[in-house]
Write a protein that binds this DNA or RNA. Structure first.
Lengths: 193, 193, 193, 193
DNA sequence: GATGAATGAGGTTTCATTCAT
DNA sequence: TATGAATGAAACCTCATTCAT
């Protein structure tokens, strides 16, 4: 697995740093190589092309993001608790990794349509976590059974994403973690019977 | 006012068409000029540079978008109705102008940080419409007085934006207008006392 | 005679001012037109093209330069006096018209080879004044009859031109007029029997 | 030292050829690259930009020019001999490198003020050679002690430069080398006691 | 004569990618 | 594996000139 080779991760971490610092368009392959401490050509031993660095970056980081989120959610007993954990994990993980937040909320969105479609592919796993919680809530009887799952999914993800983006853009003048309870209440009220 | 000169609008409309068709980065100035039926150099009589076309495009189109939305909202009597009108106008206007939806939801977001900050400036006017409806609802007694306005704003805009983006990405396989009622119910439930 | 029309001179004077201020390459036709207080298109009623402004400028200004020089020289009785007058007129006229000095010594030399050949055409009249003085000096018996006229012409013109250019480049930190006597002595010594 | 890399000199020599042939403004970077047998982009591995090619060209060529001149002058015993060697070297070196003469006498002077200031910087070394010879002549007692060094410098450089420029413009219809003796006599007469 | 909006050709430079070592 | 010098395609913008009014 390429993912186990140390240089692979080394280059991805370098990419996060460089993109967060310089922005997507100013992030030249040579800069990423320099930050990773390898030669330009070495990049191409681990990645097909520049876009592949970004896709891999998102897969790698989002994979960890999702995994940790799932682990925490599995510890909870009911949909409402799980929803709170989802929100908490979403906010805290991006809050803790400043550079990653900039990259996922701002810089990666400057990529072209093709790359964004791939990113959406990765996101699906995350969206299905949301779906499962909602379905569980309906089954438990705590959420409204008439909910349109797709719509609810957009509402939840849209709310979280917009909140984080705004927080990143406002240069983190307030604590994201402080928003968890209020956001949770707002969402739960929309979902409940 | 440059906005009254016919060529100004002509070029902006050409830009919407070309960007929707080719994507932001493949949209060469020469292509936009050709589509507008003017010479390349003429572009620079009306716009400072390529980026200025995008800023102006967004200001012009978003200006109309907001104006029409405000007009319709003003006809309604209470916050709940106004919210429904907001959602309806948001969905219908983007639904009706296919190319514009692609440009605002996908292509314009590929621009750099500076441009996005300008776009946010324009968006503020729209977000303040949302704020006013929420405040009105609270004053009327129909919305929960303890609502955190900023958070609610993110929820509403995030939900609408995410829904439209998903609709654009799914290549409009379903009717956006059909979602109005459900989205409205979902949001209102979150806001109500 | 186009030269008698007021706008012709108006545009030439504007060109001198604009070129002296902005340099040759930054002197756009539109800037010259603005400075002259006419429309861009009007320039082309009086001049064939941009280069023609420069050629005309040089002809007009150099024509006056040469005429005045000749008038003063004609008042003198012998070659040595005439030479002193030539040097004096060369230095004083350029010293008195700051902008013109910048244009002739620095900016006009940035033009292309073709324009410089035309400029040389105009210069010939000036060089022939030099030649005549030298020939007169030889006939009078005060200058060495074995002098190579062309060479002497280069020496005299080269000396004057280099001195003025250096004075312009040094931003006129010293008085050009103060150099007349010394330059005269130096040249006369080279020419005398 | 970049100057030791073969491609650096290769590109400079290509620039001399291309500029002499096409003139400064018609000398596109792509033409220089083609003449040097490298890709367009390679130019930018060795030079900051197009102007830097010209500055480097002048430094490189003028450096050699000055060095050779100094070497020959050092072999001579007195100021008069040294002056003759200076004139001889000045004429012969430019006479021998046709293209270089065109570039230094005509094309390089079309550059902008900034570039010309850099060129003047390089020229100072040459002018100080002249100064030293004159001072030596005065010390020896062969030159007039009352000479104004700066003026004499302008006379000598102006005479040589004007002579070469005229020779280049006249398309070398006569031998420059044949002028050495006469120019020398003329100058020496002006300098001597 | 005078205007000034419109034209459109043309070139420098960047940077992802390759490949000989 | 790793290197990094070399490649070469691709596009924004300027500005002299025109011509309908």
């Amino acid at each position: 697995m390429k993912n186990n080779k140390p240089k692979f991760k080394q280059i991805i971490d370098a990419a996060v740093t460089v993109i967060a610092e310089n922005g997507y368009h100013a992030s030249k392959v040579s800069k990423i190589a320099a930050q990773a401490g390898v030669a330009d050509g070495t990049i191409y031993l681990y990645f097909k092309n520049k876009e592949d660095i970004l896709v891999s970056l998102f897969q790698e980081k989002m994979g960890q993001f999702i995994e940790k989120t799932e682990q925490q959610i599995d510890l909870k007993q009911n949909a409402e608790e799980k929803m709170k954990t989802l929100i908490h994990m979403h906010f805290s993980q991006l809050s803790d990794d400043h550079d990653l937040a900039i990259v996922t909320q701002l810089e990666l969105r400057q990529s072209n349509k093709e790359l964004r479609l791939m990113i959406n592919e990765v996101l699906k796993r995350y969206l299905s976590i949301i779906d499962r919680i909602v379905e569980e809530g309906i089954a438990e009887g705590s959420f409204d059974p008439k909910l349109n799952i797709r719509l609810v999914r957009h509402m939840i993800f849209g709310t979280l994403d917009e909140t984080v983006t705004n927080w990143v853009m406002k240069e983190q003048k307030y604590k994201l973690a402080d928003q968890v309870n209020e956001v949770h209440k707002l969402i739960i009220k929309g979902l409940s019977r």
